[in-house]
Design a protein around this nucleic acid. Structure first.
Lengths: 106, 106
DNA sequence: ATAATATATCGACACCTATCTATGCGAGAG
DNA sequence: CTCTCGCATAGATAGGTGTCGATATATTAT
C-alpha cells in the first residue's frame, strides 16, 4: 500500500493539463523556465507552483545557472513510473487481487 | 491541448492510492464491488464514489447482475493511456516543445 | 407483501488545489 | 552600490476532493 501511495503522488502531479504538457516539452530536452512560460497562458508564479510540484514528485529536476533555472525530465523516474503503470494495468503473478477471484461472489 | 486535458482526467482518476490499488486488482479480472470493499478500510459509500470516478474516466466499466455489480478494466482505455504516457515521457518528432530548444535562452 | 441485501445518492465536513496579486531574493549589468 | 531581471514565496480566494453517516433504490428471499 505504501507503493501505491508513492506512485499516486506521481499520477497527481500529472493530473493537470499544464503539467502534462510541460513534461511532454521536457521529454525533448532541458528547458529554461521562461521558455516554458512562453507556451502557456498562466502567470509566472503559477508556473513556478507547477514546476515545484513536478520537482517534488521526483519526475523533474531543476538546475540553476546564473539568473536562469533549467528544468529537465528525470529519465529513471519516468521509466519507473511507466513500468509501474504497466504493472498496474497488467495481470501479474503475486497480484494484489489475492487470487481468490474464482471464489463465488459474496 | 484538448488531448492533454482528456488524459489529465485519467491521471487524476489514478491519483488516489485506493483507486490505484483497485485498478491493479481489476487487472487480474472482473470483481464484484463487495469483493473489492473487503480489501479496504473504507465505507461502502466511499468505495462507490471511487468506482464512479474510475468508470467516468472510461478506465473501468460496471456490469449489473442481480444484486451485484461487477467491475472490470477496459483494456483498450488502459492501453491507450499507457501509450499516451509513453509518448509524453519520450522525445518525439512533432513534439509540443516546438523544436526551438536550440535557441539561446531568453 | 415484507424483509434483507447490495449498491448508489445526498448532504456535510475538513482539507487540498489552481490561480491570482504583491512581494522577496539572488545574480548580472551599469 | 543600485537597478533590472528571472524566479520563488506569501497570502487570498474560489472551487474541487475524500470521507463519513443517513437514506434511497433495486433485487432477491421469505
Amino acid at each position: 500500500m505504501e507503493r501505491y501511495a508513492r506512485y499516486a503522488g506521481l499520477f497527481k502531479a500529472l493530473s493537470d493539463p499544464n503539467r502534462l504538457m510541460i513534461v511532454d516539452m521536457l521529454s525533448c530536452g532541458e528547458l529554461c523556465a521562461c521558455k516554458i512560460l512562453e507556451r502557456f497562458d498562466i502567470t509566472q508564479p503559477t508556473l513556478s507552483h507547477h514546476m515545484k510540484i513536478l520537482c517534488d514528485c521526483g519526475l523533474v529536476s531543476g538546475r540553476k545557472a546564473g539568473k536562469w533555472t533549467y528544468y529537465s525530465l528525470v529519465e529513471k523516474a519516468a521509466q519507473d513510473f511507466k513500468d509501474f503503470l504497466n504493472a498496474v494495468i497488467t495481470a501479474e503473478e503475486n497480484c494484489v487481487c489475492g487470487a481468490d477471484n474464482n471464489e463465488e461472489c459474496c
